[in-house]
Design a protein around this nucleic acid. Structure first.
Length: 484
RNA sequence: GGCCCGUUGGUCAAGCGGUUAAGACACCGGCCUCUCACGCCGGUAACACCAGUUCGAUUCUGGUACGGGUCACCA
């Protein structure tokens, strides 16, 4: 007997951006299903009319597409359990809420927001007190007739405990006295997450619920809902949270105050989707019996398993993401690399520059594509510089020695017929030999004169090739006049 | 504050009773070299604390401390 195929889901709210922690949840949920030949579905949870953001669902779809997380059922692709957008399923939720009312597992509550507010202590803590739990039929009818706004609440047991076995954290047990009578249907008729995700997961055949561990302690409420309907409870897989570190070294749930935290922000900052996926896959998960750190999506599907998931939160480290990204950039074939790098160079440099050559020099030197702008600033502008840059201990250069080199080399370079790296290098090397100088001493003088900064993406002759004959010679002439 | 969860180097992490406690990022050295980067070689750095179980605890149990989460008509 084959095991029943597993089915997981990703159920984001359309908030307008894809938080990197949400993306990781989507990834793990997807990988869990795909590692076992299961199905993965996408469901949009848009029941909060207040926070509704126009076009936000597109961001989610776009992100999943860019990261290679494809879904078997969901908006756009359809499926047998649709619709996959909660705002289109309102009648379904109302029907199920009614069942709960009929069976006594839920009840109408007419409490005003003001009364609810008064229940909280000075820290804003304090939940519903069960005020409307035992309203008589007459009272309910009267309130209804008066048109009083109402919500539907879940009736929690007064005693006992509710437990479930989480696939990552093991048994979780909560006293029922800790559980509030949570709202199932809001006054505006929309269901809450607490209610509709349970109904949907059941109706859509979800077998494994993968989500952040902020739900760990509220899951017993959902279990009770399954029980009330007589449905089999799904497997729960709660994930450790993603944390960010602030300037003071304090960690907390990763949020905007920690910098770029949405997938789109990261892409805009020059990170490659594959590098992002690879990095976040390893934040909270580690392949069993393997030290592999570079993964394609297919390899992740192969390797993923729940027992590789960590229980403790992980701090998001931009440095390591940058390293992953630089590795991915280095692995990019030239044509794909240039496709991304050249447009940036075109944007900031004129046509007199050999951008293709420059892009090549940059290939192993950038961590993100945005680094290009900074690395290349010295090409478009002749930077202000200090003559102390000409002093180099290892090559024994000084501003004076460099001036001599520049004066000697200018005519030699002017005579170069074929302006390319090999040719230029040969000329300067010969000159160095003839003067019994270290090649480095000559190169240093030229490189500083041409670049006007200490650290450059490439050596003296490579830079001259990029600049081209006229610009290179002109910069050297300028350097000579400044040093003289 | 109540409840729940967690705790191996600065960060990600392996480990699942006996190990010289892996590896990666970052950092620091060295080599390579026309600077830097790449690449290669090497180094610094960790089991939160206290009891208990055990011949033996990083690994099991309990407590403490610290961190996080949660107590919404948000998800």
């Amino acid at each position: 007997m084959a095991d029943k195929l597993i089915k997981t889901r990703f159920a984001p709210s359309p908030t307008g951006f894809m938080h990197i922690g949400n993306l990781r949840t989507a990834l793990y949920s997807y990988l869990l299903a795909k590692s076992q030949s299961g199905k993965f579905i996408l469901r949009i949870e848009d029941t909060d009319q207040v926070r509704l953001v126009e076009g936000a669902a597109d961001v989610i779809l776009k992100t999943l597409e860019m990261t290679g997380i494809d879904y078997d059922e969901g908006p756009g692709v359809g499926g047998d359990n649709g619709p996959y957008v909660q705002s289109q399923r309102l009648d379904i939720y109302r029907g199920y809420a009614q069942k709960l009312i009929d069976s006594g597992h839920a009840y109408y509550c007419f409490c005003t927001p003001e009364r609810l507010e008064s229940l909280k202590d000075d820290k804003g803590i304090g939940g519903y007190d069960g005020h409307c739990r035992s309203l008589s039929k007459e009272e309910i009818d009267k309130n209804m007739a008066e048109g009083k706004p109402f919500v539907i609440r879940q009736r929690m047991p007064d005693t006992g405990t509710t437990s479930y076995v989480d696939q990552v954290y093991g048994e979780v047990s909560i006293d029922n006295s800790e559980l509030r009578d949570q709202v199932l249907i809001k006054a505006d008729g929309y269901p809450t997450y607490n209610f509709c995700h349970v109904v949907d997961d059941y109706l859509m055949g979800v077998t494994h619920v993968v989500r952040g561990n902020e739900y760990l302690t509220s899951t017993p409420k959902y279990c009770l809902l399954y029980d009330a309907f007589g449905w089999e409870r799904p497997c729960y897989v709660h994930l450790p949270l993603l944390m960010g570190k602030d300037e003071d070294g304090n960690v907390s749930k990763l949020s905007k105050r920690h910098g770029a935290v949405s997938f789109q922000d990261l892409v805009n900052d020059g990170f490659l989707p594959q590098a992002i996926v690879n990095y976040i896959a390893l934040l909270g998960w580690c392949p069993k019996g393997s030290e592999q750190e570079f993964f394609t999506m297919d390899e992740l599907k192969q390797s993923f398993s729940i027992d590789g998931l960590s229980k403790s939160p992980a701090v998001f480290d931009y440095e390591k993401l940058r390293w992953f990204n630089s590795e991915y950039i280095k692995k990019l074939p030239d044509d794909l690399y240039e496709e991304k790098a050249l447009p940036i160079l075109d944007e900031i440099l004129g046509d007199n520059i050999d951008k293709k050559k420059l892009a090549q020099l940059l290939h192993s030197r950038i961590s993100t594509f945005s680094d290009i702008r900074e690395s290349v600033a010295f090409v478009s502008d002749r930077l202000d510089m200090d003559s102390s840059l000409y002093t180099n201990k290892k090559n024994k250069t000084t501003p004076e020695s460099c001036l001599e080199v520049l004066r000697d080399c200018l005519p030699l370079l002017e005579g170069v017929s074929d302006w390319n790296n090999d040719e230029l290098f040969a000329v300067l090397k010969d000159y160095a030999a003839s003067k019994e100088k270290k090649a480095g001493a000559v190169m240093w003088a030229i490189r500083i004169a041409v670049a006007r900064q200490g650290v450059t993406p490439g050596g003296a002759t490579e830079l001259m090739e990029v600049f081209g004959r006229e610009e290179s010679l002109d910069r050297i002439r300028q350097a000579i006049s400044e040093l003289a």
